[in-house]
Amino acid sequence: MGPCDLEKILSRVTSHTSERVLSSLQSGEDAGVFALDDKNTLVQSVDFFPPIVDDPYTFGQIAAANALSDIYAMNGTPLTAMNILGAPCTLDLEIISLILRGGEEKIREARADIIGGHTIEDDELKYGLCITGTLDRKNMWQVKGALPEDILILTKPVGTGILSTALKAQFISEDGMEDAIVSMRSLNSYAAEILSSHRVHACTDVTGFGLIGHLKNICVASNVSAAIRAKEVPLFGKTHEMASLGMIPAGQKRNKEYVLEIVKIEDRVDELLAECLFDPQTSGGLLASVHPDDAKNVLDELKRGPCPHAALIGSIEESEETKISIDVR
């Protein structure tokens, strides 16, 4: 569902919560946070979607990496997972088991356990997971907390929405988007681990609302502005080319509407590159707002380690009203 519609719906849902709930529906937090007692904190999230690649095992891996990502974006540690699956009754059982095995592999990589799940009959195949974990409240990352002069770090390239649209249209094959597939199925845990030894003031993961949509959540919650250097934002190999062939998914427009009022794109920014910044992502990277003195080190460690394409894509600025400016550099 697009961010505008979701915002409208959530604004009508009165969120009467106890004091133990440390996150709210409206703040755009990645996962729900619940204080069990003075020490222990529960963090939970759920995500599911239709296949975005043809290979069932890979789809399972991506769905799990994507579901786990919300936990990592808050600096949590996943403990348990529940499968959610909707499938047409005509679907080959072998395909379903491949999807579940792909998911299981990633949950094991995350050192968590699958402890159950639920399946329903559905016209269209869907798979995802509900993840439960814990976090250390003192070191929790939220969308609020970004400070002026912070540097914005993005750990994965963007373009999965455009590329999976192109795959659907058979403009490219899975081979043609191999870099995106590798990225989507890789866990954000490794990036989170590196970030956690530095001063991270705010963090989120880039998913359905696109890079700028999730950046807006950080900016609004933190009451700051941001400046993005579009040329620094890494894209998957064929993203720009596929965008130029009309492979921009419908959700991208909704993402753009969501941020329209606060975004200013300079004329000299390549138009298609700008469009890519709103592309809805699946299992995208972490977007962290990091203390300026730590940014270079974080980037070096990320690039040497799990995230070769990580980049410093902009900075946080002080301002009375929240704005996001997008310039070439």
């Binding site: 965008a243 130029s244 062939l245 009309g246 492979m247 921009i248 998914p249 419908a250 991208q252 427009k253």
Partner: peptide, 13 residues
């Protein structure tokens, strides 16, 4: 709008 922009881009390409 999305379809309009995409069809236009494709045809121009």
């Amino acid at each position: 709008e999305a379809a309009k922009d995409n069809v236009k881009r494709f045809a121009e390409s």
